[in-house]
Design a protein around this nucleic acid. Structure first.
Lengths: 140, 140
DNA sequence: AAATAAAAGTCAAACAAGGTCAAAGGATGA
DNA sequence: TCATCCTTTGACCTTGTTTGACTTTTATTT
């Protein structure tokens, strides 16, 4: 399968992070754009879609001379919780919309918390995501 | 009996999967449509009718540039899933006992199926077990 | 301090997929 | 023949990618 440019840049960055000591890298947007022969905003796009809090990353940057972008991989604990929080907010929204009853909402939250106890943190994120999508599907 | 276009596309995909290493293929809808000189939505139709959970397949897709459709053949472990059946029997018992509504039962089954899609088979057993215990706790 | 240069950010347009849905066409069985 | 179910098609929708013109911020030079 042919990968999109965005996919390739994403992979490249992930390899760099994996090879790094501190699970974080500092890059220059222009430099990376040159490496991939694309416009700089393409890099911004990749970072904005693939390296977000919800995908488990945190970024900082500075403009101007000697500007840079720092991308750090959040540890699993932080990342997983973000997703769970998001899922719970979604459940609450279904409650507000009267699509779920109060009891059902509480049940789901209980089930989510208890049934993921033994799932490794890394996979929890995926679970929360899948769970939310499934819930969305079902209540549509 | 003359085979319909849908049948031929189905066959074609199944051959591709059989020949693949991982029992899964990634195709482009447009490409396949061109191969069979039909409209792209014909491919969607075939996938929607022939490659479903019930027939033992699982599909994912992505839109946009370099989009694709991935079709995977579930192995017996995933398809049969005895432990999941146990959980479903438990859910049914709650239904019989009027502790859960029909809709709630269906929702839970849907959530269980969909949200464990990316959990490795090995860890699913533990998940079902935890899920059942949590459900038991909550409904007591 | 002001001007300049060197970054990164924003945003919207153009493009490139796949998804949906309903209408029309065909096959099959009573 | 008629009803029903499966198939085929196409118009329109949604999502994801790529590009570039323009803006903002920061460091450096004058």
């Amino acid at each position: 399968m042919k990968k999109s440019l965005a996919d390739r840049i994403e992979q490249y960055i992930k390899v760099l992070i994996a090879r790094s000591e501190e699970n974080q890298i500092i890059i220059q947007r222009m430099e990376l754009a040159e490496t991939f022969c694309c416009v700089p905003s393409q890099v911004t796009y990749v970072i904005g879609t693939r390296f977000t809090e919800k995908t488990g990353y945190y970024t900082e940057s500075r403009r101007g001379g000697k500007g840079y972008i720092r991308i750090s991989l959040l540890d699993d604990e932080e990342a997983g919780d973000l997703w769970r929080n998001d899922l719970f907010i979604f459940i609450d929204s279904l409650l507000d919309a009267r699509i779920l009853s109060k009891n059902e909402g509480e049940m789901l939250k209980h089930l989510v918390i208890q049934s993921t106890r033994h799932i490794p943190a890394q996979q929890k994120r995926q679970f929360y995501e899948d769970f939310q999508r499934a819930l969305d599907e079902f209540t549509k």
